[in-house]
């Protein structure tokens, strides 16, 4: 019921992201959403693919340091203020968001927001109570 994400530790050096991307490309894995947290020394690349299980396997074999995490995903209309309305609800409940990223489904005029929180169940319940559409399957 939560969205599975792969976090990849990448030290800063030329060509490192390419090595990562090659690894997935060779295995014919498609990336659906991605975000990178960058520092001076390293980056943490977070990715959701069309086949996380296979992606985990090939990345591990490729020598990458990876972690599997679950995020809360929800859908909003692709229009001004839509995401803010949801964040405001969480804010009032003093929910701390570790990080957030999103992507848009232009045909459906919807945006998918993914958030990292401490307690997925608790946050999912709040969103549900407020009538927000959760991404209930791993397939986005």
């Amino acid at each position: 019921m939560f969205v599975n994400q792969i976090a990849v530790f990448l030290e800063n050096r030329a060509g490192r992201i390419n090595e990562f991307a090659q690894c997935l490309a060779k295995a014919n894995i498609n990336m659906i959403a991605m975000s990178i947290a960058d520092t001076t020394d390293y980056g943490i690349l977070r990715v959701i693919t069309d086949d996380n299980e296979k992606a985990m396997k090939v990345l591990k074999e490729g020598g990458f340091n990876i972690a599997s995490t679950y995020l809360v995903g929800f859908e909003v209309d692709d229009k001004p203020g839509a995401m803010q309305r949801v964040i405001d609800i969480l804010d009032k409940k003093q929910i701390n968001i570790g990080y957030l990223y999103s992507f848009v489904r232009p045909i459906e005029k919807k945006a998918i927001i993914l958030i990292k929180v401490d307690d997925n169940e608790y946050v999912a319940n709040i969103l549900r109570e407020n009538g927000i559409t959760l991404i209930e399957r791993n397939i986005l």
Partner: peptide, 10 residues
């Protein structure tokens, strides 16, 4: 096999 999804953990 060890990685982190958040900078603060690193």
């Amino acid at each position: 096999g060890v990685a982190f999804d958040e900078v603060k953990k690193v």
